[in-house]
Design a protein around this nucleic acid. Structure first.
Lengths: 209, 209
DNA sequence: CAGATCGATGTCAGTTGCTGTCATCACTAT
DNA sequence: ATAGTGATGACAGCAACTGACATCGATCTG
């Protein structure tokens, strides 16, 4: 019994889940990979998902996944770059009259308002990250990079050195705790307001003699 | 041409670098792995070191490495457990009269004194971690776990919830920045004192209206 | 229009981190 | 003696990630 060898062109196995574009390949490969990854991480968990499965759902190959994302975790953090840019921009454009910690907190409040607009996505993403230690590691180093960027921005505003990094790190701590409370609760709390309350708590806690 | 099949007993290929004990295997396998790993990470870098190389230098096999350490990074963080226990113990035994943030800072000052006694080791380890992003991720999640443990301890002291986590996170931030300044500088600065100064800076930074 | 070039992807082979499973064998308790 | 026990070795295998090269529409160039 002889078997015909069939050469399958990439287009002919294009993912069922996503509409086909007009070029040689479907458009937005990167976005399809992000969406497929989040779906699979939610359905089966991060550990139980292979990169090959993500690529297959997006109608691509494993190799292509690694051309778009440095590793299996990074696909969940693609948006972090934009968020950091927004925060730095907002911080840089805050009037110099504000104290460093207040300027940092104000930037986070503005970012919190944006996050709230994509609440469903933010909550899904948070659920995936909360369920896996490796993803938490990646989240923490993104926050550390953010702290570093905000420290630089503060320095450019004339804030001297230990104060700049402390204001940035303290601001991150406030945001972390506020976000956890917001994402963990079932309430319809307002994220910017939770951030503001957490900042006031921090001020109270550090109001030592 | 026939070749004799030689079965090599583990003892006969025991590591040259480490003295042999009296049992079936050399003693302190775990410690030998830690030392071999640190040496190799310093010599060739974390990425350029394979687990097989570490095991070989310790006179063991790759499989044994993974029986002692969950992954290639964890070998650098074996001592973190003891440090966390020390910090929690110290925090728990601080008089209740101290404000939460001061109690946390006092615990870090005590731990800082211990770290200073092993300054060479602490600096070598820090150099390895500073050179590799994956190791920084691991360090950050250890600090997050530490924050969580200190938060629990503060709660047991009657500190209510947002204040407890904020005091712990703020304390971590202070320690992080103080340690960086201490390990980065060439000076003979006193780590507990650097921690104390950083805490004062934080208090100044958060002393908003 | 023909040909060169380019960019995004596919294909394939290889290394390494990490795991499951079973064998080995000094030591220990009965 | 005999039967565990515990730390290790040996081996097979999966999945993450990388390097090298091939493919082929789209685009540029003459």
């Amino acid at each position: 019994m002889s078997v015909a060898v069939i050469t399958i062109h990439p287009m002919s196995v294009a993912a069922v889940k996503y509409d086909r574009g007009m070029g040689r390949w479907e458009p937005n490969a990167r976005g399809r990979l992000e969406r497929a990854a989040l779906e699979l991480y939610l359905e089966r968990g991060f550990d139980q998902t292979t990169v090959a499965q993500i690529a297959a759902r997006a109608g691509l190959t494993e190799r292509t996944f690694f051309r778009h994302f440095a590793d299996k975790r990074e696909v969940l953090f693609a948006g972090a770059v934009g968020l950091q840019e927004f925060l730095v921009r907002t911080l840089a454009s805050t009037p110099d009259s504000a104290a460093p910690i207040d300027a940092v907190a104000a930037a986070f409040e503005a970012a919190g308002a944006l996050l709230q607009e994509r609440r469903d996505y933010a909550w899904q993403r948070q659920a995936v990250i909360a369920a896996n230690a490796e993803l938490q590691e990646r989240e923490l180093i993104k926050l550390a990079a953010l702290a570093s960027a905000m420290t630089d921005t503060l320095r450019q505003r004339g804030v001297t050195d230990p104060a700049a990094s402390l204001a940035a790190e303290a601001g991150i701590a406030v945001f972390k705790i506020a976000f956890e409370r917001w994402a963990g609760g079932t309430s319809q709390a307002d994220l910017p307001q939770v951030i503001r309350e957490s900042l006031d708590e921090l001020k109270a806690v550090t109001a030592g003699k």
